[in-house]
Design a protein around this nucleic acid. Structure first.
Lengths: 153, 153
DNA sequence: GTAATTATAGATGTGAAGATCTTTTTAGTG
DNA sequence: CACTAAAAAGATCTTCACATCTATAATTAC
């Protein structure tokens, strides 16, 4: 349901959301969120096309979050790179069942619907502001963050 | 989330549940549920190992549902062939986060939990007895069913 | 016993997602 | 302008779920 690609995309968005407008290159991002750089480039393209991040080429370019984190849902990010699939009709497509789903697939689709709603209710803003944890970034320690902000860049 | 393999397994279980104890060979099953026969054989092995279906070799052998359909959850079937994955810990495994999940992955795991619960609440018995649809079997029409029960076997 | 039928086991093939690499285009800097 | 930094684009490689095939073991019928 959450593909590896979607996982990278979410990490990237959360990281950018914490960067307060600072542009971030693919190489930087890849290092921070522990994703393969060349693959991340492809993932970021998807997020750019979807309008979730803005991109700037050339020197001092990079990616920035294009929208308010509180308005970006986790589902949007997932869909931007790897569309979430519901069950539109019975997979076997027998003539008698072109409209509506059989009992089995109705239930399975319901599971997907529940999951989809759950993904839609979570926003990036919420994730960023979640209290009670050491890290606001997924799996990146505060110390690493401070080091980065204090030293280089 | 619901892999192709799990889809085949569910169709097979629903079909067997509707067969009232009649043993069904892999070839028959594959034909009925529209699954690749040789692959279905492998899927059925998983269901057998999990104790959800019983198997009988030799002439007049085949598979039968080993338990009361009402006691078999959709989740059990899925897990028998293609384990449902929660997020046990932060995928990056930074030392600081070995216990508990970061805000992002806590939410993602929550989505999985919601889906898992939903899969667990649906039983095969429910699917079989669902009213208001032409088919009790997924995507197999009543007429096809009657033909089968009336004629051969 | 033999032959037929069927599940079981394991080796092998295939395609799509995941990942990498190279080239091109765009933007800033001196 | 030339030079460099960075995203965009697209070709290619890799890996794993999905699928197939062949051989073996178990059961029944005769």
């Amino acid at each position: 349901m959450i593909s590896q690609t979607a996982e990278y995309a979410l990490r990237a968005i959360v990281f950018l959301g914490n960067q307060a407008g600072e542009a971030c290159t693919t190489a930087q991002l890849a290092d921070e969120i522990d994703a393969p750089p060349s693959y991340l480039a492809k993932v970021m393209k998807g997020l750019t096309r979807a309008g979730i991040v803005g991109s700037q080429r050339g020197l001092h370019g990079g990616f920035t979050l294009a929208r308010n984190p509180c308005d970006v849902t986790v589902l949007e990010v997932v869909n931007a790179v790897d569309a979430f699939h519901r069950i539109p009709q019975c997979p076997l497509g027998r003539p008698a069942h072109t409209s509506g789903l059989c009992p089995l697939h109705r239930r399975l689709d319901n599971v997907m619907a529940v999951a989809e709603r759950s993904l839609e209710q979570a926003t990036i803003g919420e994730v960023l502001e979640e209290p009670g944890l050491l890290c606001t970034l997924p799996c990146i320690s505060r110390s690493a963050l401070n080091a980065k902000h204090g030293a280089s860049v």
